[in-house]
Write a protein that binds this DNA or RNA. Structure first.
Lengths: 214, 214
DNA sequence: TAGATTGTTAATCGATTAACAATC
DNA sequence: TAGATTGTTAATCGATTAACAATC
């Protein structure tokens, strides 16, 4: 795998999608695909597909195309999905509980180990078999259990404080569902899921569609 | 508001963020802001801020800056947040229930009117006071209640079929949480929330941070 | 070998940033 | 008026697409 040049985020954001389509192809028993065939399936240009993949190595073979299973495995490895990740959720409100219950991603190696909250009424509860613990003890827990990812499901007002504490405790990634932009040290990765931003963008496009023939 | 030129999606995606920061400024009692001040707050260049806003109109005033409340209202109107939206959720599993409970966005005019499922054990239940109804009756319901947005919380295998039905029934937007890319007619807007893609992208960046000094 | 298709360089397109004249 | 800051044009940068030589 090449490591010399910095790969743009636009490319990274496309990798999980390539991987999803490759999984489907695998399920259908397809074992090779050309960039042209892949293009008409996934909706990126063949040129873009080849460019994207060549950021990481020459996975194809001239005159043949790409091996579906091989490429799937390569992309999984590039994304780091051959590892296991230990996660905790901060905030046991509706959103936090939802994520605790939403086990879709488990199989891909992301395990929710615990949930933290400050509300004494929630502490001790089990959600999807995961214990709700006291936020007081979060630093200790992260250190002792080598937690990799913190999932922030708090209100926007406490999100930064929680982020600071998690970074201090040693997580290397934050998955942020609070509707704020968080400051984190350079060595911590952050991914935001701004649900309301997404809904607002949907609203924009709905209105544009409605008025575009005026 | 100018309507002549097509505005790029990159711009649209920034609008909700501008709006969030403007809301915070309003709360703090700030009533004007220059593009330079806004830049150091929000992290976009002053130039970009002025370019973005001028896609929609001249909201600022030379020598003064932008009126915080005025700009907030303008952006809200551009996004279509001065209207009300009626939504239904399809799929009363963990994710669907979570979204039904996650009332954060309600105040912004997005109302969940109903939830639909095919599972007879779930039909009739109330989640956050919203009734779970039989998927059989969904077209009729959408038509009669003038539902604007369908929220897809099904498995990836039934998502396209649900999308087709919702489009046929007359929704003008889809908020898709299923991990597939859906085909919809041109007049229907779609916004995807691919949670696992987001998590995979986080994993990538975590590993990049860990290895970048090798 | 001939045909197919990649890997990669070059051209194009679009988005961001810089500069500055307009103007409040 | 003088100073500040926008609106807008021009320059730059980066990402996408096209083209084609390399090669399986």
């Amino acid at each position: 795998m090449k490591k010399d040049t910095k790969i743009s985020n636009a490319v990274i954001k496309r990798l999980p999608r390539y991987r999803r389509y490759l999984k489907e192809l695998q399920k259908k028993g397809v074992d090779k695909i050309s960039s042209n065939e892949f293009s008409s399936l996934i909706g990126y240009t063949a040129s873009q597909i080849r460019q994207d993949l060549n950021n990481f190595g020459g996975f194809g073979q001239q005159g043949y195309g790409y091996n579906v299973e091989g490429l799937y495995n390569e992309i999984s490895a590039i994304l780091g999905l051959d590892k296991e990740y230990k996660m905790i959720i901060v905030g046991a409100g509706n959103l936090g509980q939802a994520i605790a219950n939403y086990t879709y991603y488990y199989k891909a190696g992301f395990v929710v180990c615990g949930i933290f909250d400050i509300n004494p009424r929630l502490i001790g509860l089990k959600i999807n078999d995961i214990e709700v613990m006291d936020y007081e003890n979060i630093v200790e827990y992260v250190e002792e259990n080598q937690i990799n990812i913190g999932i922030i499901c708090t209100t926007k007002d406490s999100a930064q404080e929680v982020a600071d504490k998690l970074c201090f405790a040693g997580v290397s990634g934050l998955w942020n569902f609070a509707p704020v932009d968080l400051e984190v040290p350079d060595h911590v990765a952050i991914e935001n899921v701004h649900l309301s931003d997404s809904l607002h963008s949907l609203a924009y496009h709905m209105n544009r569609n409605a008025t575009e023939n005026e």
